[in-house]
Simulated assay, not measured.
Amino acid sequence: MGVTLDLRQAIIQRVHDKENDELYDIIDGSVDGDEKALPGLGVLFEIIWKNTDAKEQNHMVETLKQHLH
């Protein structure tokens, strides 16, 4: 479990002081990219999820569901 926390912290540290446009570029460049980027996207999504209200979470789930079928 220590490795997971280290990975989270490394990803958070990498993006901590980035401007909005830099964060956008990091996310946009990782989507459909190398599978090595998936853990980073997961950490960023976790932060978004934890800081989003239930209505927005439900919207994200609905969007996901629509695109899985």
Rank of each mutant, 00 (worst) to 15 (best):
Q66N: 15
D53V: 09
Q9L: 05
R8L: 01
E35V: 06
D34K: 12
E46W: 00
E22G: 05
I26M: 02
Q13M: 00
L23F: 04
H69F: 03
T4S: 09
I48G: 02
T52D: 09
N20M: 03
I47H: 10
E35P: 04
S30P: 00
Q9N: 14
R14D: 04
Q57K: 15
K18Q: 14
R14C: 02
N20S: 13
T4M: 06
S30F: 06
H67C: 05
T63I: 10
K50R: 15
I26E: 02
L7F: 08
N20H: 11
N51C: 08
V43E: 13
V31A: 07
I11R: 01
F45H: 06
K55E: 15
E56T: 15
D53Y: 13
L38P: 00
K55M: 11
G33F: 01
L5C: 05
I47T: 13
H67E: 15
L41R: 04
L64E: 02
W49Q: 12
H69W: 05
S30C: 00
N20Q: 07
I11V: 15
D17R: 03
N58L: 11
K50T: 15
H69S: 14
L68S: 07
L23D: 10
L7D: 02
K55F: 06
D17H: 11
K55Q: 09
T4D: 03
T63G: 12
F45C: 11
Q9G: 11
V31G: 00
M60F: 13
G33A: 08
G2M: 04
D6A: 13
V31L: 13
H69T: 10
I26G: 00
V43I: 14
V15S: 11
W49G: 11
G33K: 05
R8A: 01
K18V: 03
D21P: 00
A54V: 12
N58P: 01
K36S: 14
K65P: 01
V3Y: 06
V43G: 02
K36G: 04
E19M: 03
T4R: 04
K18P: 01
G40Y: 04
E46K: 11
L68D: 03
T63D: 05
Y24C: 01
V61K: 14
D34H: 13
E62R: 15
D21H: 09
K55I: 09
L41N: 04
K18H: 12
Q57A: 14
K55T: 15
L44I: 09
A37H: 08
P39V: 05
Q66F: 07
V61T: 10
F45L: 14
N51R: 10
T63F: 08
I11K: 02
L41Q: 02
G42P: 01
H59T: 13
A54E: 14
S30W: 05
S30E: 05
D28M: 04
G2H: 13
D34S: 15
Q57F: 10
G29H: 03
